[in-house]
Amino acid sequence: MKMHFNRRQLVIPYGLFLVLFVIIPLGFIVYYAFTNGSTGAFSLNNFIKFFASPTSLSTLLLSIGVALLTTIVCLLIAYPVAYILARSNFKKKSVLLMLFVLPMWINFVLRINALREFLDLVGILNKAHLFNTILGMVYDFLPFMILPLYTTLIKLDKSMLEASADLGSHPVATFCKVTLPLSMPGIVSGITMVFMPTMTNYVISDTLGLGHVTIIGKFIEECFGARSDWHLGSAIALVLLMIIFVSMLVSGGFKEEDNGSRGAGLW
């Protein structure tokens, strides 16, 4: 049999796969979020339940707080590191960068367990739940902040900096008025890589917060486990999804050129 096909048709299996395993599942979330658990009728009760309950609201606020702090600390550590790596003339620049992003390849549960053992040794595992959780988040997500910052900073046109210096700018002014604005795409991409996962990665908060820190991801997981309220869980998942969509639209994350920093540079 002679097979005749058009190159374009190769997109069909992939497209079908995405419809089946990405789009339709999201449809299920929407359906569950807007229906009543016992009757199956349309209802907004799940959202009301979520936003009217002090426990769930404080969970949401705590998650946002943890995510904000983690993102800021990551940025404060990652920016100097990425800046030094990108601007310096170290001979082994690429090796150094590799050492900083290498943890990305290692299973995060194992890395968090290593940190847990370390904190146990230091003696603060049982004492500072919130601090440990944030430390764990920073530990896990730091490479995801360093990589996009480095990629942006290394591409930065050096003549711009020279021009700024030639025109009499103080190095600090050059940094604030040239380097920082030009590295905005890296900052935005780093923030999107860190903020959302921090709000939802309950493995870290469970392991290092020893069950004392409940973030929104944990809350959703509980809805599908112990609480057994799939409708409420779906409603919260939908709220998260909306937040992600809006932040993506704002930061332009849907653009094709931004090749998903998680993958960029790996292997």
Binding site: V11, L18, F21, V22, P25, F224, L240, I244
Partner: peptide
């Protein structure tokens, strides 16, 4: 064609940017 490519790309973008718990819950419901 551009239209098809964009549609598929946007669909493929969803699991990349989505919080993993949302992807996981959606699949579990399906």
């Amino acid at each position: 064609k551009k239209k098809v490519a964009t549609t598929v790309n946007v669909m493929a973008r969803i699991p990349v940017i989505n919080a993993e718990i949302v992807t996981a819950v959606a699949l579990a419901l399906l």
